Simulated assay, not measured.
Amino acid sequence: MAEAGGELSWLEQWYRAQCDGDWEHEWGVRIATLDNPGWTVAIDLEETTLSGRTYDGTDIRRSESDWVMATVSGDVFQASCGPLNLGEVLRLFRDWVTSVSVER
């Protein structure tokens, strides 16, 4: 299990880069807990360089408490994961953003 500190710091920088006086009023990043337990993450891609880009999706199920599912739907990166997989979800998003940036 990797430490989430680097991923969280990266996400903070990505979010800040999207904030232009308009974007942050309608779009954003949401992280919440699940009751099974786990996490959900929703990151709006509208009006970013990621808008309209495809994501192959992720479906990893190691155990009842160690799992990650992620997709892009409706211009939103959506993920859910086990209680100790939040850093992994943020790393998936970071890796995808980085790969999309390299493609352009």
Rank of each mutant, 00 (worst) to 15 (best):
Asp35Arg: 08
Gly38Met: 08
Ala79Phe: 02
Phe93Gln: 03
Trp39Phe: 03
Pro83Tyr: 00
Ala4Ile: 00
Asp22Met: 09
Leu86Cys: 05
Val41Met: 08
Trp14Gly: 12
Ser65Ile: 14
Arg104Trp: 14
Leu84Thr: 09
Ile43Thr: 09
Gly52Ser: 15
Glu3Ala: 15
Asn85Pro: 14
Leu11Ser: 10
Glu7Val: 12
Trp39Lys: 00
Gln13Gly: 07
Thr58Trp: 04
Ser73Gln: 08
Val29Ser: 01
Gly38Trp: 03
Gly57Ala: 06
Ser80Phe: 02
Arg30Gly: 12
Ser101Thr: 10
Asn36Leu: 14
Thr58Asn: 00
Ala42Gly: 13
Val97His: 06
Ala4Leu: 01
Tyr15Met: 05
Asp44Tyr: 08
Val100Arg: 07
Leu86Trp: 01
Ser63Ala: 10
Ala2Val: 01
Leu86Val: 02
Leu90His: 03
Asp66Ser: 05
Met69Arg: 06
Gly87Tyr: 00
Thr48Met: 11
Glu3Met: 10
Ser9Pro: 15
Ser99Pro: 13
Thr40Pro: 04
Trp23Asp: 12
Trp10Met: 02
Asp22Ile: 11
Glu88Met: 15
Ala32His: 15
Asp95Tyr: 00
Arg62Tyr: 02
Asp35Ala: 10
Trp27Ala: 13
Ser80Tyr: 01
Gly87Ala: 02
Gly74Arg: 13
Leu84Ser: 11
Val76Lys: 08
Val89Ile: 04
Tyr15Pro: 02
Arg91Phe: 01
Val89Trp: 04
Leu90Asp: 04
Asp35Ile: 06
Leu8Gly: 07
Glu26Leu: 15
Arg62Val: 03
Met1Thr: 09
Thr71Lys: 11
Gly5Arg: 04
Gly6Arg: 00
Glu24Tyr: 11
Ala4Tyr: 04
Arg94Ile: 01
Pro37Thr: 14
Thr48Trp: 05
Gln78Asp: 10
Arg16Gly: 14
Glu7Gly: 03
Asp22Glu: 15
Ala70His: 06
Ser80Thr: 02
Asp66Asn: 11
Val97Gln: 12
Asp95Met: 03
Val41His: 09
Val102Ala: 15
Glu88Tyr: 11
Trp39Asn: 02
Glu47Met: 15
Asp95Arg: 04
His25Pro: 09
Val100Gln: 06
Ala42His: 09
His25Phe: 06
Gly82Arg: 01
Phe93Gly: 00
Glu103Arg: 09
Trp67Met: 10
Gly82Glu: 03
Ala17Phe: 05
Val100Pro: 09
Asp20Pro: 08
Asp56Met: 11
Gly87Val: 00
Thr40Ala: 07
Phe77His: 07
Asp95Pro: 09
Val41Gln: 03
Arg91Tyr: 01
Ile31Arg: 01
Pro37Tyr: 07
Asp66Thr: 10
Val97Thr: 05
Thr54Met: 14
Ser99Val: 05
Asp95Asn: 06
His25Arg: 13
Val102Glu: 12
Asp20Cys: 05
Thr33Leu: 14
Glu47Thr: 15
Ala42Glu: 15
Cys81Gly: 02
Leu34His: 13
Glu46Met: 06
Ala2Pro: 02
Ala79His: 01
Ser80Asn: 07
Glu3Ser: 13
Leu50Ala: 05
Trp39Ile: 00
Leu50Tyr: 14
Asn36Phe: 07
Asp20His: 07
Arg30Ser: 12
Ser99Gly: 05
Thr49Glu: 05
Tyr15Gly: 03
Ser80Trp: 02
Thr40Tyr: 08
Leu90Asn: 04
Ser73Phe: 04
Arg30Trp: 13
Trp14Thr: 04
Val68His: 00
Ser99Arg: 10
Asp59Lys: 13
Ala32Thr: 14
Thr48Glu: 09
